[in-house]
Computed example of a mutant assay.
Amino acid sequence: MNKRIWIILVAILLAIAACVGVYFATRPSEPDTPPEPNPPVTEPQPGQEEPQPVVVYVPDEQGETLTPVGAQAKDDSDQALVDALIEMGALPAGVEVQSSGEADGVLTLDMNAVYGNAVRSSGTAGETMLVYALVNTFAQARGVDKVQINVDGNPLESGHEVYDSPLEMGYTS
């Protein structure tokens, strides 16, 4: 009887060994190299910021009303908003914001002479579109009630109007 027990034990051990062998032969192998660590999270450097989705106001095909459209600005700066307006064709190339400030819900933008010349050289409808493309875009983006537009430190003047008071959003479709 002892012989029979020994045979059964050896058979069980061989069965277990076979199962273990099959398990190790069929399981996925682990890589020999340790996993690479996650790349470090770095803050964007100035000038390398992610594009910001913005809403800019551009003239419709007839040049009678402004339509809000989505655009990309390189960052959250005033000049980036102007650049988005330029890219969408609402302002001419070369327009720049010289400075800006906000007080009591009024944003004051001091624009360069390129903007003033563009307003003065356009007709009445074109002037309105140039002025309100800037006003509407900045009023919405900055969350202000009114925008005062200056050129080289003085209120914007055209052949039709002196813009010496802050403007509210207008001329939208």
Rank of each mutant, 00 (worst) to 15 (best):
G89Y: 14
D78S: 08
Q45T: 11
P35S: 05
L107D: 01
V54Y: 05
E30C: 04
P51F: 03
P44T: 07
Q52T: 14
G63D: 08
E102W: 05
D83G: 06
D76F: 11
D78V: 02
Y57R: 02
T65I: 04
Q79H: 06
L107Y: 04
I86K: 12
D78Y: 13
G94W: 11
Q48F: 00
D60H: 02
E36P: 04
G47D: 11
V82C: 14
L85H: 07
P92R: 14
L91D: 05
A84N: 04
T67R: 15
K74D: 07
D83V: 02
P39I: 02
P39V: 12
Q52W: 03
P40F: 02
D32Q: 10
A84L: 09
E64K: 15
E96K: 14
G94R: 07
P34W: 13
G89F: 13
V55E: 08
S100D: 13
S100E: 04
Y57G: 01
T33C: 05
V55Q: 05
P37N: 12
D60M: 08
E64V: 12
V41E: 10
A73Q: 03
V95Q: 06
P31D: 12
N38G: 01
Y57L: 00
P40D: 09
E36Q: 11
D83A: 11
S99N: 08
N38D: 12
E61G: 00
D75M: 09
D32I: 06
P40C: 02
I86V: 15
V82L: 15
I86M: 11
Q98P: 04
A71W: 09
V56P: 01
V56R: 10
D78T: 10
Q79A: 07
T33S: 11
G101K: 14
E64D: 08
E102I: 13
G70H: 01
E49Y: 02
E50D: 12
E36I: 13
E96D: 08
D78R: 04
Q62R: 11
P37E: 13
S77N: 00
E50T: 06
L109V: 07
A84H: 03
P68L: 12
P59R: 08
Q62G: 12
